[in-house]
Design a protein around this nucleic acid. Structure first.
Lengths: 362, 362
DNA sequence: TTGTAGGCGTTATCAA
DNA sequence: TTGATAACGCCTACAA
């Protein structure tokens, strides 16, 4: 049970009287060994309890199968869910993920990237927003941006414009008199800017009264709540009686708004219709399940990893690195029509089981 | 701009007419070089755009600075927050994290662990529950379990017993007639079992009517909701009029229950007092901020990483590996008294800014 | 202060 | 089908 040195190919070689080359081949080209030899080596590996050392392999072969991931934060569940789905692609692609949280700190993120490069990551998936894609593009490794500024690197994004358009259309369909979009100030370079555009375009094209309210949101629940209270107070005085369709920039904010309204009224008044964005778990788990323009998070993750892997593959084949222009994949959003816009009115709000046959205790 | 071979110490050495040993020393023992030599090498590194290769370093020196992490799932925000805090310790300890999601799949997790070991991780933090600690202990690397069965490995846990005790005490203090604890069936080996024990002990010691309801929770919001509806229906018929203090196993479930009650009543009746566990972000962001027995998540993460790192350090110093018995750190919980038990009654439920002009109900 | 030589554990190349 | 040898890029003696 002593902490002996780790068993290596050399040990296996000596034990079996093969060379370590042959042992190596057992793993990489097993067919080139006789069945007998394979068996012998297999037994030896078992007997000596061999544990693979991929670090040595990396040095020899140059492939780490590491992908670096930089997540901006975990306040929005969108990111934890996206990370979840990214990590889950291990089963599909076999790549491992080195994960950092950016916390909106540009200098920090630069250090993280340096570290990732030092560990010879083969590609990187960037969810954080601080570092411009131009800088990322100079890293000379395959990079895929997800829902962030992506001019100079590959990316996978939801079709935000269509999403914003759909949101407006859906609210309009609910007979709203006034459509409102609440968002943070968003640079045009971010894909999320499309949400604003799509919303506005729909409203203009259909001549629907609307306004876009831009505030410094997405800080914390309490701060967002304070901001939204002001907005709602304002609406209550200026738009009393009008049916307001509110499109929030994300489900987290939508949830905050919903909570606020339900606290005021005990339910969500028909006068307010709410739709969020992302289809983050938040939206399903809200006091009233929130309608949302769903990002296909699992698909986004798969496409993102797939795209990185594809780029890695191409590069490995000698294809020029930055020759081709960046690929931008676009994933369509999906409307989830839930209680904050359609399904249930305030009178059907009660939640109870048909007939209870249930017992207690343990 | 061509994808030339990467620059190595050899290149720097040739360029500067030093040996690569000297270049190596520039990084590891800079004081052993003249200031002048340092400058020369520094310039060369800059000029040739040297990028560190830690893989080679690992092979030479045997230290990866990798810690493997296995998270069970992301349904409970407790885990994403814990992961967040673990990742954030990079700034403090410098260790990088290879992250896998277990998804409650024992075989999968075994494969992940194999992979992690192949990458020469120096230690592992295990949040998932599937693999017994006895098996983990045989891995011959420092392991820290967090809030899971931990008999044979080091661990960091919240003082669950005290937490359960406090929860009961707090509910009792709110003049509840009947205390109820809702949980999943929990093996005694899990730290979380202490929540049940603590709750029951308090109730017995103080002769408070109570019951423990064990159901197969923690699957999904909808499933949990269905289960809770049955439970509430039951309580409504059997305990009508009694003030019920309900202690939920975690904030996620507490949130589900709260939503359900608020949907029935438009507010949280005084007849129901609710307290959760974890102080996951969920609890603050619920329709009514949920009182909770808070786990000090940031501290848990720090202690967990710190403990792994400490073990790594000791091992490096030749101290026997598994000689010492596993260390179990215990972190006290913190009661967060919020609206579901104390702060606000249903009449003060409205949320508006000071000058607010809001209406009530219908 | 600096250099030489060998090793870390694997794979690639060339022979046999 | 197998083996010997030289990488991969860095670090650690030991020497100078």
């Amino acid at each position: 049970m002593e902490s002996k040195k780790r068993v290596t190919f050399d040990d296996i070689a000596k034990y079996t009287n093969f060379s370590k080359t042959t042992v190596s081949r057992y793993f990489n080209k097993p067919d080139s060994l006789t069945a007998e030899s394979q068996q012998i080596i297999s037994d030896a590996l078992e007997k000596l309890d061999y544990q693979a050392n991929k670090v040595a392999r990396i040095l020899a072969v140059g492939k780490t199968e590491f992908i670096g991931v930089i997540v901006p934060e975990f306040y929005h569940r969108y990111y934890s869910e996206l990370l979840n789905q990214i990590l889950s692609t291990y089963e599909q692609f076999g790549y491992k993920f080195l994960v950092f949280v950016g916390n909106n700190n540009k200098e920090g993120e630069r250090r993280y990237i340096k570290e990732l490069l030092a560990y010879q990551i083969e590609g990187m998936i960037v969810l954080s927003h601080t570092i411009p894609s131009q800088e990322l593009a100079q890293l000379e490794i395959p990079i895929v941006a997800v829902e962030r500024e992506d001019q100079f690197v590959c990316s996978v994004n939801t079709d935000n414009y269509t999403g914003g358009y759909q949101a407006a259309a859906h609210l309009a369909q609910q007979q709203c008199d006034l459509l409102i979009h609440i968002n943070s100030p968003t640079p045009e370079s971010k894909p999320a800017f499309g949400r604003i555009q799509g919303f506005e375009d729909y409203c203009r094209q259909h001549e629907i009264p609307h306004q876009v309210i831009l505030r410094d949101l997405d800080r914390s629940y309490e701060k967002d709540q304070a901001i939204l209270i002001h907005i709602v107070d304002d609406l209550e005085s200026t738009c009393k009686g009008k049916k307001k369709g509110i499109f929030l920039a994300n489900d987290t904010t939508a949830n905050t708004l919903l909570n606020l309204l339900v606290r005021r009224y005990g339910y969500l008044p028909q006068e307010y219709r709410i739709i969020g964005f992302d289809n983050a778990p938040t939206s399903r788990e809200a006091i009233f399940p929130i309608s949302t323009i769903g990002q296909q998070i699992e698909l986004l993750a798969q496409e993102a990893v797939g795209l990185v892997v594809e780029q890695i593959r191409q590069r490995k084949q000698g294809t020029p690195l930055s020759a081709a222009p960046p690929i931008h994949k676009v994933i369509p959003p999906i409307l989830f029509c839930r209680e904050t816009t359609c399904k249930v009115g305030p009178t059907q709000v009660l939640l109870s089981s048909p007939a209870g046959t249930q017992s207690n205790r343990a």
